[in-house]
Design a protein around this nucleic acid. Sequence first.
DNA 1: GACAAATGTTACGCTGTCGTGACGTGCTTC
DNA 2: GAAGCACGTCACGACAGCGTAACATTTGTC
Lengths: 229, 229
Amino acid sequence: MSAPKLLLVEDDTALAELVEYRFRGEGYDVRTTDDGDEALLLAAEDTPDLVLLDWMIGGTSGIEVCRRLRRSKATAHVPIIILTARSDEDDRVRGLETGADDYVTKPFSPRELIARVGAVLRRVRPALAGETITVGDLALDPTAHRVMRRGQPIKIGPTEFRLLRHFMEHPGRVFSRGQLLDAVWGSGSDIELRTVDVHIRRLRQAIAIPGAADPGRTVRSAGYALEAV
Amino acid sequence: MSAPKLLLVEDDTALAELVEYRFRGEGYDVRTTDDGDEALLLAAEDTPDLVLLDWMIGGTSGIEVCRRLRRSKATAHVPIIILTARSDEDDRVRGLETGADDYVTKPFSPRELIARVGAVLRRVRPALAGETITVGDLALDPTAHRVMRRGQPIKIGPTEFRLLRHFMEHPGRVFSRGQLLDAVWGSGSDIELRTVDVHIRRLRQAIAIPGAADPGRTVRSAGYALEAV
DNA sequence: GACAAATGTTACGCTGTCGTGACGTGCTTC
DNA sequence: GAAGCACGTCACGACAGCGTAACATTTGTC
């Protein structure tokens, strides 16, 4: 979970290998396919954190893959970067309209692509860029699986960790119990809504420090949020 | 093995001598050639730890050397730094596309080049940038295949050595069993995940010293990490 | 203030994960 | 070929963490 998962959809084998190699070197977990239909399968199987999508591929066309990724619930919010050989303005517009997050024209340098991917991931999910997230006096390091508050290490279980991480990635935002179940437990989970309460309680207890206010906020009949104290 | 091996491919004799002299002064083991074909031979003969490659050379062109180094299995992952007189963006892009790791435009100061080489080596293989890696009270000498803790030599098997080395190259970071299998056993290995546990256990047992805390950390349902004490 | 709804808190059984010792095998060394 | 070593696998016990229900408390409404 610590390495960002990329799905590369590219039918130029040489380019695909190059990109894959460079991104692996940067610590990414890369899966590659040259086929649009297979891309959708792979994405459904193991939701990637970002999709690099060539515009011109066999199987399903790029624009169609893009559209169908957006339509599927699991991949609806996964950022997509379009790769295309044509700097055609029409394509650009259509790509962004279909819901792509960025657009890179060939030829590009791997370094540039790495930078763009980093930028998009930082924007969408700060924790994936390999940085520690900080909200108020809380600090969470995703790669080290570690939480600190005011310099003190916090002992925390796996579920509470994921829960806190989700809150810290969207500070201040209120999530309903259902949304939290989807985000933290996974969308297919069959868990009682009230179970969330218990983990919220455990999380609050774990991060409680005498003399520090509880950054947790309960919004009655709406859900929970993390307050940036 | 203790000195990092550089392969310098440069046809400007004066510059080559200068660079070679300075890098030898820094403790590097440098071999020089002005010919692309010979460079490939030398690289195949004794895999260097890093290649400094002039863009404009006789024999095979720089880009071709770069490509063929990547294609050969032994040198596929050897970092390459391109040296070029032209700051031309096209060259830069092509160089990076071909898989170069960095790019230095002439004229450069030897000091700058030394810094860049150091940076690339540190990133790719930390153990090569210095003689020993140190984390907390643990010291690992990759060249001598030796591990010390608080001055005491630690007896350790080959697998445990690679395991520890991997942890020490990424201190604090949590690795899943699968990631450790990939990194330590090789990505093609067909080994049980639980086998990792046993080697973790053996490693812990080996580096245990009465009165010293175990720097190993188990992150339940996530993996293992080395505590950066 | 009375009532209901929503949330906080606690206890408990269950499950999966982990630590550990033991065993068999292949390889090297002498 | 005997002995030692490193390795991979398995089995078993321990226990942390999980989900749930049941009870307690708070909040909002009339």
